[in-house]
Design a protein around this nucleic acid. Structure first.
Lengths: 353, 353
DNA sequence: TTGTACGCGTTATCAG
DNA sequence: CTGATAACGCGTACAA
C-alpha cells in the first residue's frame, strides 16, 4: 500500500561553508543615485513621495532601479525612521483554525498599509509567551497583537515599556495593557447553559480541551446549570488541543463510564462536538434525542455535518478587522480607538441541540 | 437565540494623533554601558559572546540591563551584521491546515536557533506572490520559504539576485531556484488511480478545489485511469478553497446530475472526501459499497470519521523539518543540503475505498 | 526641486 | 579583556 518517492537527487556546493551574507557590495540608494545622476536622498524621496521629485529625474531613477534590480533595505529604513512597519503577533497555536482565521482577518484589515506580520506560537504557555515578546520587541514592531489577557508580569512590564500599541485579542478585561478586542468567555459559557436549560435538557456534561479560555467557558456553564436547576455537570477534560478523536473518546467515556444519557453536552470546540456526533452515530444513538451537543466556534463545517451543530458563534472576521482598525488608528493617527471592545457572541441553534 | 456582548467601553487619549515613535530617548547599549561603567562595545560582546567578557563586568552589565529594562535593537544589529535572523515564508493560505502545519513543522525545525518567521499569504496568486517576495526581501531575511514551484520570472530573478537560500516546498522539480523539498503530485495522482483500478472499481470521478497542485493530481489520476482501463473520469471542480459544503455539493451533483454510482471518487483533499461521506450517509448510500472515496492529506480527522477515509498521506512534519534542516545548513554552515529532496507519499487504505 | 550633514543602534576591525 | 572607530543603508532636518 505504500509508495515512496524517488529519494534525494543532485547536489551542489560541497564545501561546508555558510552562504555568504552577501556576494558583492549590495545595491543601495547610493548606487542607484549615482547611476541616475542624482544623490541618495533624491532616490529615497522618489520612493517615499514621488510628488516631491521632478518627472524627469523620477524616470531616470526608475530606470536605474530597474537595471540595478535595487531592493530597498527596510532594516535601514526602519532604523532611521523609527518605524518598522512590522506588527508582531503571538497566537497559542498556528494550526488551530480559530487563531489562523484571526490572523487572516487581521492581515486583511491592515493590508494596503504596507505592514507585515511577525508571527509566533506560544503553545498556550505564558512563560514561552514572555520569551517571545522579548525577541519580538527586539525587532521594534510598530504594534503587537496578543492572544488572551493572561500574561506574566514581566511581559506586561516590557510591553508597557515598549510604548507601542498592544492589542489583546479573543477575550475581555477591565484592565487591558493597552487595547482589548474580544468577548466574555464567562458570558458565553453561561449563555450556553441558559440555552441548554431553557431547551429542557435535564442532564449535563462538558467536554473540554486544554485551553484556559475553554475552561472558563466550561466552569461558567457548570455554575450556571447548578444555579438554574441544581444539577451537577459531568466533565471530561483533555490536556491537549482538541482533535476529532478526543470527541469520539469523550462520547465513549460518557456513555460507558458515566452512563450518560438523555442530556446535553457542551463542548469547548466544534471539532469535539463533531467527534461526539460521529461516535454517537456509530453507536446508533440519535442526536439530539438521545444526546444533544453544543459546540463552540461555528467553524466552516459546523453547519454541514449531520446533524448540523448548534454552536456559539464568534465573529472572527470582525474581531480581526476591529483589531486592525484599532492598531491602524494608533499607528497612522486616526481617531483614538476604544480601549476595550466587546464584540459578543451568538448562539446558533441548529439540529444537534 | 442571539445574545450580544455589552458593547464598547471606556476610552482614552481623545486627540487624533498617532502614537509617538518613541516617548523619550530609547535605552541603548550605550545607556547600559554607561550605567555599568563600560563602553557600548563591551555590552555588545557581553550579549553576543559572554565568554569574551570578564565575569565581573558581565555581572555589572547584567544588572544594568535589568534596571534599565534594555531590549536590544535587532534592526540595528541586522543592519550592521548583515544577518537578520529572519526567515520569510510565503504560503497560499494560512487558514489551510495543510500549510499551517507545514509552517509549524518548519518553525519547530529552526527553533532554538533564534530565527523568526515573517509570514504572508499569497492567495494562490503568483502575481501577488511576486509583490510579497519583493516586500519580504526588503526586510533582508536570511532565507526564504516558498510554496510550490511556479513563480513569475521576475520573482525568480529577485530571488536569485538576493543571494539567500530559497526553499520551494510541497512539490518537486528538476530545476529549483535553489533548494526544493516535496513530492510529485503527478505521481500521487497516478498512484491513486493505480490503487483505484487495482481495487476493482469500474467508475471514476474526481472532485477538485482551486489549487494548481490539486489539478495536477486530478489530471494525472484521469490520465492513468484512461491508460489502464480506457474509462472516462467525471470531474467536479470548484474554484475556491475546499470546504465541507463543497464535498456535499459535489456528491449531490455526481448523483443527481451525473447518475454516478458504483465507483470511486478521488478528492483533492480529505475535507472534500468528508463532505462526500456525510452527503452519502444522509442519502442512505453505503460507503464504499455504493460509492467509494479517496481523500488527500491524511488530516487529523481522516482516521476518525465514519467510515475512515482512505487517503494519500504526505509527511508534513518531515517536510517542514527537512526544509528547516536545509536552511540551517546553508545559514549556519553545516554540510551542504541536497538541492532537491523528494519525500514521496503513501496511500493509506482505510474503509472509504 | 535637489543636495549636505547627521543620526538611527548595532557589529566588525583593529589596536591596546 | 576592553575600547576607539568605522561601517551598515536609509530618513530627517536644513540649506541651497
Amino acid at each position: 500500500m505504500a509508495k515512496s518517492g524517488s529519494g534525494t537527487q543532485e547536489r551542489q556546493k560541497t564545501d561546508g561553508t555558510a552562504a555568504r551574507p552577501s556576494g558583492g557590495r549590495s545595491v543601495t540608494m547610493e548606487t542607484v543615485g549615482r547611476l541616475a545622476g542624482v544623490s541618495q536622498v533624491t532616490v529615497s524621496r522618489a520612493l517615499s513621495d514621488p510628488s516631491k521629485v521632478s518627472p524627469a529625474t523620477l524616470e531616470k531613477i526608475r530606470q536605474a532601479i530597474e537595471t540595478t534590480g535595487f531592493v530597498p533595505n527596510a532594516l535601514a529604513g526602519a532604523l532611521a525612521s523609527r518605524r518598522s512597519k512590522l506588527i508582531a503577533a503571538l497566537v497559542p497555536s498556528i494550526t488551530n483554525i480559530v487563531y489562523s482565521w484571526m490572523i487572516k482577518a487581521f492581515t486583511e484589515g491592515i493590508s494596503g498599509h504596507g505592514y507585515q506580520i511577525l508571527l509566533s506560537e506560544t503553545g498556550f504557555d505564558p512563560a514561552e509567551e514572555e520569551k517571545l515578546i522579548m525577541t519580538h520587541l527586539s525587532r521594534r514592531p510598530d504594534a503587537i497583537l496578543l492572544t488572551g489577557i493572561h500574561h506574566t508580569s514581566e511581559a506586561r512590564r516590557m510591553l508597557l515599556a515598549a510604548g507601542i500599541p498592544v492589542v489583546e485579542l479573543w477575550d475581555t478585561t477591565e484592565s487591558p495593557i493597552d487595547l482589548c478586542v474580544g468577548f466574555s468567555h464567562v458570558e458565553a459559557g453561561r449563555a450556553a447553559a441558559d440555552f441548554a436549560v431553557g431547551a429542557g435538557y435535564r442532564n449535563f456534561a462538558t467536554v473540554c480541551a486544554g485551553d484556559e479560555r475553554a475552561t472558563r467557558r466550561r466552569d461558567a456553564f457548570t455554575r450556571e446549570v447548578a444555579r438554574l436547576c441544581g444539577k451537577n455537570t459531568t466533565a471530561i477534560n483533555f490536556e491537549e488541543i482538541a482533535r476529532l478523536s478526543h470527541g469520539r473518546d469523550a462520547m465513549r467515556r460518557l456513555i460507558e463510564d458515566e452512563g450518560f444519557r438523555d442530556g446535553v453536552i457542551f463542548c469547548s470546540s466544534d471539532i469535539l462536538a463533531h467527534g461526539i456526533i460521529i461516535e454517537a452515530n456509530a453507536r446508533g444513538l440519535k442526536i439530539p434525542e438521545d444526546v444533544a451537543v453544543i459546540g463552540f466556534g461555528d467553524q466552516e463545517f459546523a453547519a454541514y455535518v449531520e446533524p448540523a451543530i448548534t454552536t456559539v458563534r464568534v465573529d472572527r472576521t470582525k474581531l480581526g478587522h476591529t483589531a486592525a482598525a484599532a492598531i491602524l488608528a494608533r499607528c497612522e493617527g486616526g481617531p483614538s480607538p476604544d480601549r476595550v471592545t466587546d464584540l459578543g457572541f451568538e448562539i446558533i441553534r441548529r439540529k444537534s441541540a
